[in-house]
Amino acid sequence: MSGVVRWNPFDDLGSLLPRDWLGRFGLQATTEWSPRCDVTERENEWVVHAELPGVEAKDMDVRVANGVLTIRGEKRSERTEEEKGRRYSERFFGSFERSLAVPENVDVDRIEASLKDGVLEVRLPKRAPSAADEGRRIEIRTS
Rank of each mutant, 00 (worst) to 15 (best):
Y88T: 01
E97C: 12
D109H: 10
N105C: 10
L115P: 03
D117P: 02
I111C: 02
R87Q: 12
V122T: 09
E112K: 15
L115S: 06
L120Y: 07
V106P: 11
K84A: 14
P103F: 05
E83Y: 13
A101G: 06
G94M: 07
E104R: 14
R87W: 00
A101N: 11
D107K: 03
L100Q: 04
G94S: 05
K84I: 00
A113L: 00
F92N: 01
S89A: 12
E82Y: 01
V102P: 01
T80M: 11
L100N: 04
S95C: 11
G118P: 08
F96G: 07
E112H: 05
L115T: 06
D107E: 09
E121A: 15
F93Y: 07
R91P: 00
L115F: 09
K84F: 10
E121D: 08
E97G: 09
R91F: 06
R110P: 01
V119K: 15
P103A: 07
F93N: 12
F93T: 14
E97R: 12
E112F: 00
R86G: 00
V106Q: 08
S89Q: 10
R91A: 06
L115K: 07
E90Y: 10
R91G: 05
R123I: 15
E112W: 00
D107P: 04
L100G: 02
P103I: 05
F96L: 08
L100K: 05
A101C: 02
S89C: 01
A113E: 14
E104I: 07
S114L: 03
E83N: 11
P103H: 06
R86T: 01
G118N: 10
V102D: 02
L120D: 08
P103Q: 05
E90D: 14
A101L: 13
R123V: 15
A101D: 13
A101H: 05
E81A: 14
G85L: 03
G85W: 04
V108K: 12
D107F: 08
A101E: 11
K116E: 12
R98D: 03
L120C: 06
E90N: 07
L115E: 10
R123G: 04
D117I: 00
D107Y: 04
V119R: 15
R98T: 06
S99W: 03
S99L: 07
K116L: 09
S89G: 02
E121P: 11
E104Y: 02
F92R: 02
E90I: 00
I111T: 04
L115Q: 13
V119M: 15
R110E: 11
R110F: 03
G94H: 06
R87P: 01
F92D: 12
F93D: 07
E121H: 10
R98A: 12
N105P: 01
G94Y: 04
P103E: 04
Y88M: 03
E90K: 01
S89K: 09
L115H: 06
K84V: 00
A101P: 14
G85P: 04
F93R: 14
R87N: 03
S114E: 15
F96T: 09
F92E: 09
F96I: 12
V122Y: 12
S89L: 01
